[in-house]
Structure formats: C-alpha cells, structure tokens
C-alpha cells in the first residue's frame, strides 16, 4: 500500500482524540501506512474562510507543502472541515488568477500535485467494501446504527467529488460490511449546527435535536459519524440539546472508525470507546457473543 500523509487537525488533538486513535488503529490493521505531517499547523477552519479565502488556502497549503516534501502524493484527513480547506488550497493553487498571490503568501515551495481525501473515502474507495468485509473478525450481530454524514463530506458535489450529495451511501455500505443493520435515514446530510456550538448553542440544540429525534424514530441504537464537529454537537452537547428541547436523549454517537475497529478485533480502549460522552458499550454486544465460551454453550 502506498504511503499516505496524515493530517489530523486540531479537533483530533483535543476533544476528538478518539477519532484520531481509532483512525490510526484501523489503518494499521488494514495495512495502510500513515505518515503524520511533521509539525502540521491549523487549517484555519471556518474563521479563516470568513476572513479571507487566501488565508485559508495558505494555512492549509503549508501542510500540503510539507506532505509533498515528505514524498507523499495523497493526504488523508478524518475531518471534513480540514478536508475543505486542503482542497480549497489545491483549487487556489491551480487557479491562474490566484496562483501568484497564493504562492507569495504561502512563502514556501509547493507544486500542488498532492491529492486530498477523507478517511471515509480511503476506506470506501481505496480499501473497498469487499476487502473490508474479508477482514472482519467480530461481525456485529443485531446492532442498529444510522449513518450521519453531515454537510461537507459530499457537498458541494463538484468540489467534494465523492458519493451522492443528496443520498450518500458510503458509510451505509461500510457499516453493512461489518454486520451492522442500517435503516434508511432521511437526515443523513442535514446540518447539525456546525460551529455555532460556542456562540449560539440554542441553534445547535434545535438542529441536533432534530437529528437525534429522527435517529430514534427509525429505530437506531446509535448514530455513526465521520466529522469531529458533528460528533461534538451530537454527543458532548447532548445534555444541552436535552435542555433546549426538553428531551431525554441518551443516544451514543460513535465514529465510523470505532465501529469498524471493533469489528476488526481491535480492543475498545485502543479505539477510545471510553472517551465518548454517551456510553457506547452496546457495540461490544456481538463481540462478547463471538467469544469461544459463548459458542460452546450453544
């Protein structure tokens, strides 16, 4: 397998640490070599986009330039927000009208040959659903999980260039491959409130509340996500959501890499399952049943 540059981004260094360790653990189990971009910096996220698109491109560009210098031709990031910035930098770099300004502000050599993808794209396209199924050691028995994609993974379609913008299925297929039951979920791409957790958590309360509510209605035991911001809004802020909406949600919100990791036989601790705010031990149900003692009884 080729060497893939790894850009974890700031969220995965802090509140989303379990997304980082589960991504690394799953890639390791699947034989994918990740090379952490040395001395990476923040991509600037929405604040940079809202201040100056060139700032966003140059901040993300520094990471891409370092990755290129390391000899990588693909960079993978688990965070859709970071992915947007990395792809934006590549777009700016190849835009004849902005290219010179971009290079002047970036101030370091960069060719722009590298390609940026999400961890979801890596698992779905580069590894593939069948290859993943073949690696499963502890298939799930009866867990019901809905995939929540959020807004940026597939949108806007021309830019994201991945899956279907209105009804994405990549996570559905990956979850099914490891034995999870996946109901249709109408709110797959509805926005969760994004960065307004801090400044306007009433908005997050309402939008996230709707998503959790729909998940329950279709019979889900948990929501699977591929974005640190979505996860924070749905999991860390679930108590705030309950307060705003006068509800009593107690729904686990797990990273897709954690769900896959358990099925690959990786220990829960190595996937940071204990770092989630709403307890997600239900994932281990089938794992326990698959143990030898349980089999001899039956």
């Amino acid at each position: 397998m080729k060497r893939i540059a790894y850009y974890q981004g700031c969220s995965l260094e802090g509140l989303a640490s379990e997304y980082d360790i589960s991504t690394r653990a799953v890639c390791d189990a699947l034989g994918i070599e990740l090379i952490e971009i040395p001395d990476w910096n923040c991509c600037g996220s929405s604040p940079a986009h809202s201040a100056d698109p060139l700032l966003s491109s140059a901040l993300a560009g520094r990471n891409l330039a370092i990755a290129e210098a390391e000899g990588c031709d693909v960079v993978m990031t688990p965070c859709p927000g970071c992915l947007k910035s990395l792809k934006g930098a590549l777009e700016t770099c190849h835009d004849p009208q902005q290219c010179d300004a971009f290079r002047e502000i970036l101030g370091m050599p960069f060719e722009g040959r590298i390609r940026a993808i999400s961890v979801l794209e890596l698992l779905y396209k580069d590894v593939g659903v069948d290859a993943l199924r073949a690696q499963v050691q502890k298939p799930y028995a009866d867990q019901v999980i809905v995939p929540y994609y959020g807004c940026l993974l597939t949108r806007p379609p021309k830019f994201a260039d991945f899956d279907d913008p209105e009804n994405p299925v990549s996570m559905d297929r990956l979850l099914e491959a490891v034995g999870v039951t996946v109901p249709d979920f109408p709110y797959k791409t509805e926005c969760c409130g994004a960065t307004y957790g801090v400044t306007r958590n009433d908005i997050v309360g309402k939008l996230t509340g709707r998503i959790l509510d729909m998940a329950l209605r279709v019979g889900a035991e948990a929501v699977a996500v591929a974005c640190p911001l979505c996860q924070q809004n749905l999991d860390l802020r679930q108590a705030q959501v309950n307060r705003h909406m006068n509800r009593t949600f107690d729904l686990p919100v797990v990273y897709i890499t954690q769900v896959i990791g358990i099925a690959l036989g990786i220990a829960p601790k190595e996937l940071g399952l204990d770092k989630l705010f709403v307890n997600a031990d239900f994932l281990l149900r089938s794992a326990r049943e698959e143990e030898p003692q349980a089999k001899t009884i039956g």
Binding site: C151, R155, P156, C191, G193, A194, Y196, I203
Partner: peptide
C-alpha cells in the same frame, strides 16, 4: 453571519 456554510443551497 448565521450562515453555516453547509452548502445545501449551492447543491
């Protein structure tokens, strides 16, 4: 300022 850049409109 309340727009979340969710890209639904663009799509």
């Amino acid at each position: 300022w309340l727009c979340a850049s969710c890209q639904a409109c663009t799509t």
